[in-house]
Design a protein around this nucleic acid. Structure first.
Lengths: 341, 341
DNA sequence: GTGGCATCCGGAACCGGTTCCACAATGTGG
DNA sequence: CCACATTGTGGAACCGGTTCCGGATGCCAC
């Protein structure tokens, strides 16, 4: 394999000059630079990133910690991050970490703390103090996208407002018996994404002077289509007290719920209005009213922040209002309509 | 940051001995090893993978090239690969490459050819000769999972047999007007996964002495729910010649098709039987007959092969029959039934 | 007693870059 | 004309590990 010494020899310069010519740092005469570049091209020279990292401490690689790749939201975020990193010349090392088991500790203490990554993007993970510390001690920038992580840079949508907005949409349509399909652990972890959406739901219900139905109208389920399906069955079963509207904590859950309603012969939206959250690519197909967020864009944004933290930014970069929540938008489709009667 | 020299000094040995003690290579007295390990633990020593890679040429990192992360099949494969690599102590660098644009060339010539990865797993990508060569020249093992890649190790299901089996299932139920929702470019690229499924469909139709309907009953569409939805609308529109059964090239397409049928008031399975391919996690919820494959397991298998190629295997490793196709299984649910009348 | 082998350890070279420093040549202002 | 800054280049140190080689020791067999 060609090394920089070979390039230097071929170009008739020293290793130092060859390095400067190829990396663009320091003084190099134009003619010399061209000679070196020609020599490099001729022998197909590719710099060893390992050698460079060893001395500079920079790896041009960022780690992404993400609990799922197969939920639409997370997949979309991941794709957004990947594209942005690639175009910035960075590699993406994937750590698919769900639970908290020993795997997770190993990743943080062993993989991430090593010198392999310049920074970490955590998507939808609630980081422990220990985990945040481990990165801080190694001076590795950390950006959290949804989920929490101590003092780290955070990019989040205002999920409480989202929950409130979704519920208000149903209230404005005249619904009074409104159910909520919440994410698993929503009530146990009030600061999580799902917990905030639940809070927003409760806020809106309370503001209207209504009763949440003694929690009978709140069901926690897996944030997926099957989760929504089985969850919805739980309060669609009793015809008497059946809600006329449903706020699902994600579009996937909402679609599952629609499916469940169809199975039970309950017509959507005539007998049951359904609203979701996400702006899922399938939402249009299911004619689903939803509150869109833009996960691909969120991923891109997270990379922006990381690049700035790494000092990769140029002065011309637009500063994102780091405090402001991420954008969302209510998109009304056919799955919600006025309350019956 | 603590370096191996610090460990050596603290333990009262040389760098060489410290290295041997920690890596487990070469002769080290038990007592010495314990001293070194204690010293390393005391100062929180973590070896620099860059330095190690530089001299050994091994990075403990494999690159994964994959066109989507957000299609169920690919997401599942990716998760399987990730888990397997993590437990083998390897990192996973993700390259999310769809089309062929300049991005793709850059990844192959620039990222993958660099010393960053020990091997490459290509999932559902048709590699060009140039791309395979680039890796071969660098002596990087390459494993293809679905899709083609010259002389590289290949893990594939027999998609032609899958197409045939699915179609035969419908034929055995007495259907004679059978449509096929094929993947995009299925006919243009007969050796692709989707092309093979189409071939299998045609084989089975021809074996029965039937006519494929002059291709009117074959529609190519995006391999997704919306793709299946709009694709299905194309041949469900004309009541007269409407097929009574549909073989969709993926479960996502099949679910989209079911949705389309419902929209048109066509009852599934009474008026239209639908079969898909994949074993999607939503298949059960939609009561979908399908030919399951096991993408998570396929990912794990691909990692197995890579590890063997990298010489990581122990002698006890079971040899996979590298020639045999990957397992599939027909799972009959409620979306297929006997032909009407 | 000596040759041979296995075990244990340290010195030093090496991987392939980057960067500090010294030095030379050229321009520039006073 | 000289002090000095700017530009261009090479030598050498360095990043943090791994590994080759050679020396030292202990043990066994002959």
């Amino acid at each position: 394999m060609a090394a920089i010494g070979d390039v230097a020899r071929l170009a008739g310069v020293s290793k130092a000059t060859a390095s400067r010519a190829l990396s663009g740092r320091g003084y190099v005469a134009d003619g010399t630079r061209r000679k070196v570049e020609a020599a490099a091209a001729e022998i197909g020279y590719i710099a060893s990133p390992d050698a460079a990292s060893l001395v500079t401490g920079r790896t041009k690689n960022v780690g992404v910690v993400i609990p799922f790749v197969n939920r639409w939201f997370f997949g979309e975020v991941l794709e957004g991050i990947e594209r942005a990193l690639l175009s910035a010349g960075y590699d993406l090392t994937l750590y698919n970490l769900g639970g908290r088991g020993p795997e997770r500790a190993r990743v943080f203490d062993f993989f991430l703390a090593r010198k392999r990554v310049d920074a970490v993007i955590a998507v939808g993970v609630d980081l422990t103090e220990h985990e945040v510390d481990a990165l801080e001690r190694r001076e590795k920038p950390l950006v959290c996208l949804g989920g929490s992580g101590g003092a780290a840079a955070r990019l989040v949508v205002d999920d409480r407002a989202v929950g409130q907005l979704a519920t208000e949409h149903l209230l404005h349509l005249g619904h009074t018996r409104i159910a909520h399909l919440a994410g698993v652990d929503a009530s146990a972890r009030p600061h999580s994404v799902q917990g905030q959406r639940l809070q927003g739901f409760l806020d809106a219900i309370a503001a209207e002077g209504l009763d949440a139905g003694g929690r009978a109208n709140i069901v926690e389920a897996d944030v997926s289509m099957p989760g929504g399906y089985t969850g919805a069955l739980q309060f669609l079963g009793h015809p008497g007290s059946r809600p006329t509207a449903l706020f699902a904590a994600s579009d996937e859950m909402a679609i599952g719920a629609i499916r469940a309603a169809e199975r039970l012969g309950i017509s959507v939206p005539a007998e049951l209005s359904v609203i979701g959250v996400d702006g899922h690519e399938y939402a249009e197909m299911f004619d689903l009213t939803t509150i869109e967020q833009y996960p691909g864009e969120q991923g891109r944004l997270a990379v922006d922040v990381v690049m700035r933290l790494l000092g990769e930014g140029t002065i011309a970069d637009p500063l994102p209002d780091s405090g402001a929540p991420l954008p969302t938008r209510l998109v009304v489709r056919g799955s919600t309509t006025s309350a019956p009667r």
